[in-house]
């Protein structure tokens, strides 16, 4: 009986791990989509109002969607150190913070590259830099969507199978 219960626990644990991983993938996809939306907002605000960088970040810290808001809130807090550190280093630091921005390492690197442009160039140049980053994040989002779609069934299934196999071996 105990063996049976233990085996069942391993199977359920495997399935849960699969579900958690699937949720993580879907969270990354959602976050990436919101990040791209926030960069698009930044682009349109820059073109329409030439808003100062800190104002833009302040707006996004209030209004950006879901988890991406955390990234801008963090960045805004880091901007208190502007003067002792450059904007680029603060942006890179915020982009590297996994807690506030649950996206992949490559996507983080793409976002980080924007720090070298923000606040240093003309509106046209900033617009081009934002467009390039959005263009590079676009395929990442498509691939994340595919991964989420497939993963919603695959990962819990894999977890379940893995759990069964482990349970079978030990029983």
């Amino acid at each position: 009986m105990i063996r049976l219960l233990g085996g069942l626990a391993v199977v359920v644990g495997g399935a849960l791990l699969g579900i958690v991983y699937s949720r993580k993938v879907s969270r990354q996809e959602r976050c990436l989509g919101q990040l791209i939306d926030s960069l698009r907002y930044m682009r349109s605000e820059l073109k329409a109002t030439a808003a100062p960088t800190t104002q833009l970040i302040g707006q996004l810290a209030l209004n950006a969607g879901g988890e991406v808001r955390e990234f801008y809130v963090n960045l805004l807090a880091r901007l208190e150190r502007l003067g002792d550190e450059s904007f680029e280093s603060l942006w890179l630091e915020a982009a590297a913070d996994r807690e506030s921005l649950p996206i992949g390492a490559r996507q983080r690197q793409i976002l980080g590259s924007l720090g070298a442009f923000m606040g240093k160039f003309s509106i046209e140049e900033l617009d081009a830099a934002l467009e390039a980053v959005i263009d590079r994040l676009g395929p990442e989002l498509l691939s994340a969507r595919e991964k989420t779609r497939d993963g919603n069934r695959l990962y819990p299934g894999l977890g379940l199978c893995g759990g069964f196999m482990i349970a079978a071996i030990f029983m």
């Binding site: 502007l82 450059s86 606040g119 003309s122 900033l126």
Partner: peptide
Amino acid sequence: PEELALTLELATRSSAHTYA
């Protein structure tokens, strides 16, 4: 050169585009 860039960044509060 980096120090000059940082000085300009401080003066424009990282918003050189508004001072174009």
